[in-house]
Each structure stands twice: as C-alpha cells, then as structure tokens.
Design a protein around this nucleic acid. Structure first.
Lengths: 139, 139
DNA sequence: TTCCTTGCAAATCGTTTGCATAATG
DNA sequence: CATTATGCAAACGATTTGCAAGGAA
C-alpha cells in the first residue's frame, strides 16, 4: 500500500477525531467542505474506505443502512437509539470471554465479535415519557 | 394491522422455515419462484418486511450490505464467515447479563443487544490450510 | 364490495467506479 | 517523472414505492 499525502485526507481524519458521535460519510462530507469547498463525496468515501482498510478508523455497520465511522479503533461497545438513530460509545469492559466461549462451540476460526446495544437514548426516552404524560387522558 | 391471506406469503414463510442458513431476499425469490413463477422481487421484499414487522421472522443485518432473514425469532448468536459470507447459528447461551451490565452504565433505556461473531467458517479455514500446503514451496 | 396483495417498472439511496486532471514525492 | 489522489458524473446494487389489476373476506 503506497500512500501519498493529501490535504483532503488529513482534513477528514482531523474532523473525525473531533467527533464522538460516529458520523456518516455524508456528515463528514458536509463538514470537511467547510475547509475544502470543492471536495467531492467520492473523495470522502474513498478516503474513509482507505482509512478503514489500513486500520486508522473503524467502519461501523449498525444496521440502519448507512455506514458510520469511528476514530476510535479499540474494541468497545456502541449504543444505537432506535428512535433518533444516534450512536454513542458505551463505557463497559469488552467481554473478550464471550468470544472465547464462542470458540469452544464452533468448528472454524472465530476472530472476533461485533456487538451493539439498542433502545432509546436519554433524550428520546425522556421525550417518550413527556409524550405519554401530556397526550394521554390519564397518566 | 389488517392481514389477508396470500399464497405467496405462505410460500415465503414455508421456504424460510426449511432453511437454517439465513437466506437473502434474492435467494428467497429464486426459490419461491419454483412454486410461483410469476412472483416478483417486490412482493418478496414486501412480505419479508411485513413478516419481520409482525415478529414472525427476524431481519439480520450483519454488515455485508445485504439483509438476511431468519425464521428463528428467539435471541441467539450468529457467526458470519468473512471469506464466503455464510451465516450460521451459534449454539451458545445468550448473555442477557451483558445487556444488564450495559444498562448500569447508560442513561437511557437499553432494550437489547445484537451480537455476531466473525472469522472463517469450517470450510474456509480448511481451504486456507490446504492452500498453504499445496501452493507454498515449503509447508 | 371493500381493501389487502400482487406484478411490474420506475424511483431511491448509499456507495463505488471510470476517467481525465491535479498534486505529491 | 512516476504514481497516487482528486472532482465530476455515471454506474451500481439492494431495497422501496406508485400504480393499475387481481384476489381474499
């Protein structure tokens, strides 16, 4: 893999490093365009893909049909809000022993696990309660 | 939700119930077409989506860009082969306590977890060894 | 007769790719 | 100079959707 320096790629990495909310390619595009008004979506995709391949970032497929990108490449858990779609990190020790347990029940080579939790984020679960209390006749 | 009977939907459910390999919509389409030559991909997608919504089947998004469908709706683990893309069930007790642990570290409502393991399936890991032994000068 | 379901084709959406040009080393 | 990266637009692949016609209750 022979890389050359590129200001666009730098900018993409830099932007991603400032965000903890695992933005999509489109969000990256919208933001990097502030510094590089002529950058194309294709370039953003190409660089995100490349960075993920060389292990500098992580591509997150959480099942909402859009790829999210994470500057943090260490194994950790994610939470996905079923209502607003927000993605956040979970501070919870990563259960490597689960991978180990899986290995003992499988013929083949298990290399890792991908886990994410889903439900309603703080904001959305609060909204749900508000909604019930104000909209329903009896609460 | 007001449902009416449909032979196509029955056939889709029946086919899915015979398979443990979590087929994609396309595979379902190809197979159901044996009984219903005029069925359309759209109908297959509509029914798979509907069945998933009413909880009769599970939609699996394992991150390969294609949805897989599972007749088994009970919580269980899946394995995905990084090489051939095959998906299989893992016989391993589902760690509900991990969900519980996550709840204690999160402000908001966690409703569940989705976990899948990845690596090389029995076939592919064997092939890898064969390849090495036959192709490399020294093994 | 009502309204759910179908087949068909077109539309959508996220992502990738081909190509000529620009930038890097 | 050789090669990688870019911008643009077109292509792609999976899934969804609008619509008129068919089928179930």
């Amino acid at each position: 893999m022979n890389l050359k320096h590129s200001k666009q790629r730098d900018s993409i990495k830099k932007f991603l490093s400032t965000r903890k909310d695992h933005p999509t390619a489109d969000i990256v595009y919208l933001n990097v365009r502030k510094s590089f008004p002529n950058i194309s979506l294709g370039t953003v995709y190409r660089n995100l893909t490349l960075l993920a391949e060389i292990g500098e970032i992580t591509r997150l497929r959480i099942g909402d049909g859009v790829d999210h990108f994470d500057y943090d490449t260490s194994p950790h858990y994610h939470f996905v809000c079923s209502e607003c779609g927000s993605v956040s990190d979970l501070r919870l020790p990563f259960a490597e022993d689960l991978t180990e347990a899986a290995r003992n029940n499988f013929n083949g080579r298990i290399e890792g696990q991908i886990t994410y939790f889903y439900g309603h984020c703080e904001n959305c679960s609060r909204k749900a309660v508000d909604f019930q209390c104000s909209e329903l006749p009896v609460c």
